[in-house]
């Protein structure tokens, strides 16, 4: 459940890592109330606007890494089939870049690019979600499961599991934090039959 929240955060982080703008929904102060449709639209627009800039930056990063002797970067990984290193040279001790495979390699390449793939940090929101302005939880489905751990630096409590949907806000009985599901772009392609 929590990993789902993490995954959503990761999606956001990974998508916006190379932009100077971070999504307004994750900033401390959101003055205006937004509907999930508005947030979803905003998210889509930002991606489209920044595709060019993002690609340039990735190209620059790849070039930089290539000059430093690293052929493979996190952006070359398309599937788990790609997660293999070149292997060590004869009579040398392999470095982690040369040797690591699988999730460990994915994590390593992410770290080299400054991306925390598994998001070891706290997933606790740093602002208070209200019924009018809930914490958005990105999801492929029209509902999501959220483990509420409180509010960062203010009210930390044991995990309480909630089930917000796109229609209804879920409110934590312990700290009053509100959550609402927001569909990610492209969601609903296979929705409606209980996935």
């Amino acid at each position: 459940m929590l990993s789902r929240v993490n995954a959503n955060k990761n999606l956001l982080k990974a998508s916006f890592r190379n932009f100077s703008i971070s999504p307004a929904v994750f900033q401390n102060k959101v003055t205006k109330t937004k509907t999930s449709e508005e947030i979803s639209k905003e998210y889509n627009t930002m991606i489209v606007e920044n595709v060019k800039e993002r690609e340039d930056k990735i190209k620059e990063y790849k070039q930089f890494m290539k000059e430093a002797g690293y052929e493979q970067t996190i952006y070359d990984i398309k599937s788990s089939e790609d997660l293999f290193g070149p292997g060590p040279k004869d009579n040398t001790v392999p470095t982690e870049y040369e040797q690591a495979t699988g999730p460990a390699r994915f994590e390593l390449l992410g770290k080299m690019a400054g991306i925390d793939i598994f998001d070891y940090g706290s997933s606790t929101p740093n602002r208070i979600g209200t019924p009018q302005d809930p914490i958005p939880v990105l999801s492929q489905d029209p509902y999501s499961y959220v483990g509420c751990g409180g509010i960062q630096d203010k009210n930390i409590h044991e995990l309480i599991y909630l089930r917000p949907t796109t229609e209804e806000v879920a409110r934590c009985p312990e700290c009053g934090q509100c959550y609402k599901t927001v569909l990610v772009p492209g969601a609903g392609a296979h929705g409606g039959h209980g996935h």
Binding site: Q99, T101, G102, P103, A104, R105, E107, F118
Partner: peptide, 10 residues
């Protein structure tokens, strides 16, 4: 650990 690479930092 060595061939599947499932031993992440954690």
């Amino acid at each position: 650990g060595s061939y599947l690479g499932v031993h992440t930092l954690l």
